[in-house]
């Protein structure tokens, strides 16, 4: 049973990985990656690593890949990739790929072949249980664990700072977004205010969103009829 599953899931993982690289439509490339990660999860299960398998599905398939799909569904979709890499970058990527293959080959041939004549690592039912992994994370790998937690925290704060800039950037404007913008007085425009939801930039109560000017642009003369009664001439 395990052998049969391996020969179904193993090739599936490889095919899906190739598909991720080869498919031109980004949405389908991401879908292929999802299939690849699911196949990997099944391989983990065949290796008796149930916890890792389920967490793989939970984190990668359930959260990370949904975000990827979200983005590609919005901005991807057409078969042509946007932009391309320069020739030097391309050769660099070939070199990195080739050296990775050599590295993995050395690793596998060096360690894997030794194990062929043996019975392999002994199976311990406790190995890889949630309790054991938790204990290892909080004792032997504590520093690494805390370090990666800190890294994630920094990434989260960065995302919040980037997303919560206090004023929408005007078209053509070159402005550095600083953490101080977080403490700017309200009404100077969050992202939502910036697109005209609530009184945008002071003095720009009549800011309009037009295809020409973009979001949160100052009121242009086109919309101003000269009086201040709040009615504009519509063109």
């Amino acid at each position: 049973m395990a052998e049969l599953l391996f020969f179904i899931v193993g090739p599936l993982a490889v095919i899906a990985a190739v598909g991720t690289v080869a498919l031109r439509n980004p949405f389908f490339a991401v879908l292929s990656l999802v299939v690849h990660l699911l196949a990997l999860a099944m391989l983990f299960m065949l290796l008796q690593a149930q916890f890792v398998a389920v967490v793989q599905v939970l984190v990668y398939v359930g959260a990370v890949m949904v975000l990827y799909l979200f983005v590609t569904a919005y901005v991807g979709g057409d078969a042509d990739p946007r932009g391309g890499s320069g020739p030097s970058l391309r050769w660099l990527s070939y070199a990195i790929g080739a050296s990775l293959v050599v590295l993995l080959a050395i690793t596998f041939i060096g360690s894997g072949l030794q194990a062929i004549d043996t019975r392999g690592a002994p199976y311990d039912p406790e190995l890889g249980s949630p309790g054991q992994i938790g204990e290892l994370l909080l004792s032997r790998y504590l520093v690494v664990f805390e370090g990666s937690a800190l890294l994630l925290l920094v990434a989260t704060v960065g995302a919040v700072v980037l997303a919560r800039r206090r004023r929408g950037v005007l078209p053509g404007e070159d402005r550095t977004i600083s953490a101080l913008d977080l403490f700017a007085p309200t009404g100077t425009g969050s992202m939502r205010e910036g697109v005209g939801a609530i009184n945008p930039v002071p003095g720009a109560i009549r800011a309009r969103i037009t295809p020409q000017t973009g979001a949160a642009s100052p009121p242009s003369a086109e919309f101003d009829d000269g009086d201040d009664d709040g009615t504009e001439d519509r063109r």
């Binding site: 916890f51 389920v54 939970l58 949904v66 949630p130």
Partner: peptide, 22 residues
């Protein structure tokens, strides 16, 4: 009845959201 039963529930729920999304 698995020792990671609760995680399996969440894993299937998150894969299920692909049904809606796709």
């Amino acid at each position: 009845d698995s020792d990671i039963g609760l995680l399996i529930v969440f894993a299937f729920a998150s894969v299920g959201s692909y049904g809606v999304l796709l």
